[in-house]
Nucleic acid binder design. Structure first.
Length: 481
RNA sequence: GGCGCCGUCGCCAAGUGGUAAGGUCCGGGACUGCAAAUCCUGUAUACGUCGGUUCGAAUCCGACCGGCGCCUCCA
């Protein structure tokens, strides 16, 4: 039996922070709404994926084994619109499907590159919608048999009024029927709230054959069908951006629970938006930065990762380059401290005796760090505990140098924390013969009080991305930035 | 119009009833050939405004102001 620490997380379903309950002890089945691959992801999308990464890492570090499934939406209106450009009106369906696949493959590749650059842990499964048409068709059939769906002109719709708990997640009041008044619906549904499960194909659109004629799945059904196939009939955790609460997640619940006849997802969790210049980012507004845009400006993806991870996932966050600089400086502080702990210990340094020594302070910080993360992923508070420890131990080490053992314990904790933040190295820096030689030459120049030559060498070394630090004993340390 | 979120030091941000964590930036000092790193240090009488509840409120209640989101595709 695994031992694990409870993790509390805000549940959109209950609007409360509550401990994650798993269907199977110690094992979290987690489903995340992934990208719609009709363009490169913008940094707002990436914030959501970073939130899911944070959640997974905290769960893993707390002793849970996480089975994670993230879908790739590779069929949808915009994908069809943008992928069919250049095809002759007479093109046949297999050409159209192939063209669409080429189009989505391109953006899917970029998506995975972004995940890698941001050190987002891969999911166990990345099912694609177009690979699961039969599963979706089967699920729609089930809903029709249960009288929760109906056919209209080659399309199939979910009958919302017959799913009694509809609106439980988004708290939408179905009693408000004013919206029906001006209903002049293009799809001829029974009710405006009804949503499409299967969309009849229009001319010159790629399609799949179905019992209801040629068409393609509606947007919501893929998550219900693939989640069920991959993770089963009881999902512990389902996550996505806050905008997916309605209608997407509400509709997923309707479809899945309509079929299963029992609750499907225990814990729903949603990440807040990222704003840029206090405005919502969206692909349709065209005001978005991609990760590549940042990299082209010389920004390290890790700095972006850290900036996002140091803010609470349920709070609106305004992206700024100033914030990025602050994040970079914060990371440097931790890296500097880590390097200090790696330095060799002088002869005869013993460990602290009595209370309030470095290990006591370390343990205090460690407890606060994990408690904050396990309390609804409170990263700002977790990092505050870490920074406080860094300041505290820097000052203490100035007065009473740490022993080798003490430093080793501190490094272990930094490695532990890095399992979440992935922002500082966990291995010793490598050495380099050429740099070593230049540093020796500079030390000699310093001894000769040849400051000009000493500064020359330092500039040369710095241009290689290396920083020098002179020490009291006339030696010099160097490391890569 | 309906539902909901947010407003804490220049910037970021924790704290949600007991008397304002932390980071960053900027200034002063120590150390230093100069840097870098590190340390020390620099009045948040104060949490959008106004009222209320309370022995006590940034934290609860009400009103108002400001910003934002969802209700249609959206991370």
């Amino acid at each position: 039996m695994n031992s694990y620490q409870p993790v509390a997380l805000y549940n959109t379903l209950t609007r409360k922070v509550e401990a994650i309950k798993t269907y199977e002890p110690g094992k979290v089945r987690m489903y995340s709404c992934g990208p719609t691959v009709y363009n490169v992801a913008h940094i707002g999308n990436l914030r959501t994926f970073l939130f899911q990464d944070l959640l997974k890492r905290v769960l893993s570090a707390s002793g849970f084994s996480v089975l994670h499934c993230m879908n790739i939406t590779d069929v949808e209106d915009k994908i069809i619109r943008d992928s069919q450009v250049g095809l002759a009106p007479t093109a046949n369906n297999s050409d159209r499907l192939m063209k669409m696949r080429e189009f989505t493959d391109h953006f899917t590749r970029i998506f995975f590159q972004d995940l890698e650059a941001l050190r987002i842990l891969p999911a166990n499964f990345y099912p694609k919608a177009t690979d699961h048409i039969p599963e979706m068709v089967a699920m729609i059939n089930e809903l029709i048999q249960k009288n929760l769906a109906y056919l209209r002109e080659g399309s199939v719709y979910f009958r919302v009024k017959d799913f009694k708990s509809y609106g439980q997640l988004s708290r939408i009041d179905l009693g408000d029927s004013t919206s029906e008044i001006d209903d002049r619906d293009e799809y001829d549904r029974e009710h405006v709230r009804d949503f499409v499960l299967w969309k009849a194909a229009k001319p010159a659109e790629p399609y799949w054959d179905s019992p209801w004629g040629p068409g393609r799945p509606g947007w919501h059904i893929e998550c219900s069908a693939m989640g069920r196939k991959v993770l089963g009939e009881h999902i512990d955790l389902h996550s996505g951006g806050i905008d997916l609460i309605f209608p997407h997640h509400e509709n997923e619940i309707a479809q899945s629970e309509g079929c299963l006849g029992h609750p499907w997802v225990t814990h729903w969790t949603h990440g807040e938006f990222l704003l840029v210049q206090n405005e919502k980012m969206s692909k349709s507004l065209g005001n978005f930065y991609s990760l590549k845009d940042l990299v082209d400006q010389g920004i390290d993806p890790i700095h972006f990762r850290f900036m996002i991870q140091s803010n609470h996932y349920r709070k609106l966050f305004n992206f700024s380059f100033e914030g990025l600089r602050a994040s970079k400086a914060s990371i440097e502080r931790i890296r500097n401290f880590r390097r200090r702990m790696e330095e060799p210990t002088s002869e005869g340094i013993a460990s602290w005796e009595g209370p309030l020594g470095p290990l006591d302070r370390l343990n205090h910080a460690r407890n606060e760090f994990w408690a904050a993360l396990r309390d609804d992923l409170n990263t700002p508070e977790a990092l505050a505990a870490l920074y406080t420890m860094v300041s505290d131990l820097n000052a203490l080490d100035d007065r009473v140098p740490f022993s080798f053992l003490e430093k080793q314990h501190i490094i272990l904790f930094l490695n532990e924390a890095n399992q979440i933040f992935e922002a500082w190295p966990t291995v010793l820096a490598e050495s380099d013969q050429e740099i070593e030689a230049l540093v020796k030459e500079r030390i000699q120049a310093k001894k000769n009080k040849d400051w000009k030559r000493a500064d020359e060498i330092r500039n040369q070394i710095q241009s290689l991305g290396i920083t020098l630090e002179d020490t009291r004993d006339g030696q010099s340390k160097w490391f890569r930035r």
